[in-house]
Design a protein around this nucleic acid. Structure first.
Lengths: 230, 230
DNA sequence: CGTGCTTTTGAATAGTATCAAGGCCGGTGG
DNA sequence: CCACCGGCCTTGATACTATTCAAAAGCACG
């Protein structure tokens, strides 16, 4: 993929663009490097040295944390406009891995450059701080959910979360069972059971690799006690 | 408690002081308000409008998130030098409550002032961003732990966490069962069972309201598979 | 000493994880 | 074109773990 200047870039939800700092955009334009990643490719690897920040231009990337005996926890799902690798800032190594779920294009800015950008653009620092703040709220909401929800509720919560980010024009989401289970923090067998239930209840329609939400309100009702505003 | 100027303050781990920006310290000195909170008093209340930031001068405060049917999740424990209320930044209302676990003194800076401080001190913004980054790492590590650990492991993890923050000279921690259970994300009965086990195994000593860790290494071994570096 | 609160223990129940097997589908090669 | 293979998904039976309910024991307080 050929490099496109930030000023010429069509991505309307890019973090750098939404900062609205022309000088910053010019600067990033000169130092960023856009790369293509094919499906299931690692963007960052848990334990690797922190090299810089990644800005998603297009594609879907899962952020995962490896646990005990091969188990993985999906920490969050991302798409264009999101940032990857910011957890590493201020630390030595990345605490998570990021893996593409489909072919993606991602812009990279190295450590030195991003620090230089922070120094010259307080707006960037401030906006990124706000980004962290939002992420922290989400993360802590998730702690509560995983700690207190039943398996059924976890599945519904994960479905709504996925749908919110990834739904296509048919209210459908394409995500494989393992990823969805890792997102919910359960195993695939239980996920499968709950999905079957929801299908039987007419709330979902399931084809080979697509889940369609027929009755979103009923899903929302299931997680209602947790006061989640989707 | 009478107001002490930041420049005169003895708190060596205050966030504002560690920024090392004299102008900032002068500014905060003029706008901050230090208040005394007695044990079990609410500092911020979940759902309340975001008013500003709190800097802990002394005391221990638990940050909790209320869940379903009266259950609460302890999101983190804090002490002097920590910040409270930063999750609210950029949002309308606080997503969490903060409650003192002992008599505490806390400095408050209102929204307008803290935003003004951000504008005039890029260092503050940057340092706070780094603070968020660390918190986010911790938070996501906790997601993984709660999702994958057994009850026994959760208890051990919570004990080590509490000890790291709150241990006194005897390697003892003072924390009531309910708080420890809410931190681990389990109920008090199970906590009690595990504590009894650990006591029987000689790893812990338990008196009425104090838990003493006799063999820290054995505790660390129990959560070893999760690669936690305490 | 009661009285009320927290903590501990026990037993029954419910929920979840694991193990094992079978089904579905796409791809490959005869 | 069809049979076979392998991966992913689903389902069932079983074992295990955690939750709930109930009750007793310990402790603080008046």
């Amino acid at each position: 993929m050929k490099e496109v200047a930030c000023t010429e870039c069509s991505s309307s939800d890019c973090f750098i663009r939404t900062c609205g700092d022309d000088q910053l955009m010019q600067f990033v334009s000169n130092v960023k490097r856009t790369s293509f990643y094919k499906k299931k490719q690692y963007v960052v690897f848990e334990g690797d040295q922190v090299l810089g920040l990644f800005f998603i231009l297009s594609g879907r990337i899962k952020v995962v944390s490896s646990g005990i005996s091969g188990k993985t926890q999906v920490v969050r799902l991302t798409k264009s406009g999101d940032i990857i690798g910011h957890r590493g800032l201020g630390g030595e190594t990345y605490p998570i891995s990021a893996i593409t779920m489909e072919d993606s294009n991602i812009c990279f800015v190295d450590n030195d450059s991003i620090y230089e950008a922070f120094m010259s653009s307080p707006k960037l620092t401030f906006d990124l701080m706000m980004y962290y703040s939002k992420e922290l709220r989400n993360s802590e909401a998730k702690i509560k959910n995983i700690a207190q929800m039943s398996v059924r509720e976890k599945v519904v919560d994960s479905l709504l979360y996925s749908e919110r980010l990834y739904r296509d024009d048919n209210n459908s989401i394409q995500i494989d069972r393992q990823d969805l289970a890792d997102l919910a923090g359960i195993n695939t067998e239980q996920l499968s059971r709950v999905l079957s239930e929801l299908k039987k209840e007419g709330i979902l329609a399931i084809t080979k690799n697509e889940i369609t939400i027929n009755d979103r309100n009923q899903l929302v009702d299931i997680v209602q006690p947790f006061n989640i505003s989707y």
